[in-house]
């Protein structure tokens, strides 16, 4: 097995291990805000960094040349974002919900059929690499907003239905989750705006399917931000938008990578 494939497999196992550990701890009611809970995703982050470095060396460019690499890159961004956001919002439990999403992306990346032929060599344009990387980090922020939205909806349901279970005690307060969703959407929107601004500098045609999809995603989250800012939507509706809205950037990846 190649080193990069081994790193990817180990990263996937770290995520799955993190999920199993968290589920067992939650079922036993022994989940605590311990630094140990950060370990699986930190390990996955390091392994994925190693994988992306090796792929970058092999490709001679940012490792975003195939759908698999894009999924892995997004997975890496999500974990990075989680490691940045989680401690700030004291959301160690966010990892429990993030790990399955990242594990799913990594598994999908491994089962996808390999690209038939490598893309034709083209000169490396640093700005283009930056545009792609920044845009995908924005997608990771939206992914984390989606995960946080799911946590909000779950806790909100438990509160509304008077289901004071083990999970209820472990989940953060809904006001904290609502704040985290807002900030993640704003961070994502800011990054995506930067990515699109770079595309202007690159003079990429606006009719390019990738750019059209990026604008659709930008429009969606700009609308959500506006609704949040004007208090038109309730925190619950915002959580729904954050959770369900991620479907659009997720499926747009297909178009982006095959466009």
């Amino acid at each position: 097995m190649d080193t990069d494939a081994l790193l990817l497999l180990l990263a996937t196992l770290a995520c799955v291990g993190g999920v199993v550990h968290a589920v067992l701890a939650l079922r036993a009611g022994s989940w605590k805000n311990s630094r140990l809970h950060w370990l699986p995703l930190t390990l996955a982050f390091l392994l994925l960094t190693g994988f992306l470095y090796l792929r970058g060396q092999a490709n001679g460019r940012c490792p975003l040349t195939t759908m698999s690499e894009v999924l892995i890159f997004i997975g890496w961004c999500i974990v990075m974002m989680y490691l940045l956001v989680g401690p700030a919002f004291r959301l160690s439990l966010l990892g429990v919900f993030t790990a399955p999403l990242v594990a799913m992306l990594l598994v999908l990346a491994q089962v996808l059929p390999p690209t038939a032929s490598p893309r034709p060599a083209r000169p490396i344009i640093a700005l283009l690499e930056l545009h792609a990387a920044v845009s995908l980090i924005a997608y990771a922020a939206f992914a984390l907003a989606c995960v946080t939205g799911v946590m909000y909806l779950l806790q909100e349901r438990l509160l509304k239905k008077h289901q004071i279970s083990k999970l209820f005690y472990q989940l953060p307060p809904i006001s904290g989750l609502a704040r985290a969703i807002q900030k993640l959407i704003w961070i994502g929107l800011l990054l995506l705006s930067a990515g699109l601004a770079i595309s202007f500098a690159l003079k990429i045609e606006v009719s390019n399917p990738k750019i059209i999809m990026a604008w659709i995603v930008w429009g969606l989250y700009a609308l959500v931000s506006l609704l949040m800012w004007r208090h038109v939507t309730s925190p619950r509706q915002t959580a729904w938008l954050a959770a369900a809205g991620f479907a659009i950037p997720f499926f747009s990846l297909w178009i982006v990578t095959h466009g």
Binding site: G29, S30, K32, Q155, L159, I164, K166, F168, Y169, L171, P173, I174, S175, G176
Partner: peptide, 26 residues
Amino acid sequence: RNDTSIQRGSTSVGSVAVDLAEKVFD
């Protein structure tokens, strides 16, 4: 305290109210 659920949950109306408030607000 760590290995059992002996300290989990609220056992009085007052502490239930606190737990609920803590899960909605700061």
